[in-house]
Design a binder for these strands. Sequence first.
DNA 1: ACTAATCTGATCACTGCCCCAGTGATCAGCACATTAGT
Length: 187
Amino acid sequence: MADRVDMQYIQRILKTHHRRNHTKFTREQLKSLINVFNYEPYPNYTTRQKLALEINMEESRIQIWFQNRRARHLFEKRSKPNEALKSSQERRQDNPEERSQVRRCHTYYNTSQLCTLKKAFKNNPYPGIECREQLAKEIGVPELRIQVWFQNRISRLLSQVKEDPEETTDSETEKQESRVLKPHEMR
DNA sequence: ACTAATCTGATCACTGCCCCAGTGATCAGCACATTAGT
């Protein structure tokens, strides 16, 4: 019985799990991105926004590009440890100015927005791009903030389940959330 | 094959409340994260 319920759950998620379109950067955009990366591999929000305007690309795509670029760079440089990128923590220790560096403004969700997000999470903890965009439009928050909200929520739920797998609750919502499957377990 | 997109877990940063829990933002990923579009 439980297996059948899970299958329905999995099928529903797979059906609605769509990725964002693959972004194709132009040669000029890549040139600008690489230039910035070479002297600032950890650009703050202000820098990313400025760059976004400059190359006419969403700031969220730029943030992801830098994450992927750092991952490749760190992988390539692992054989030469002294050339590795400094972590953000190390950089902050080196440079007190870094401590006041601009992070993106904290997003505050009101009760109604949170209610919508929680309802959506209950229905599908791994929403695809269409679903996230619809939610973003519905509650008036950028799509990437929705993605981060879901990432934090699933992450905290999974670590909570790991910490106390025996935990049982009477709440139907929590019961449903506690049987969340990881994406690779769905395939 | 290359690389953008996504996921997980850890940690930072800030808020509201009174010392720490809650939560959004950011980051790495080490038998070198995985998945999927081009």
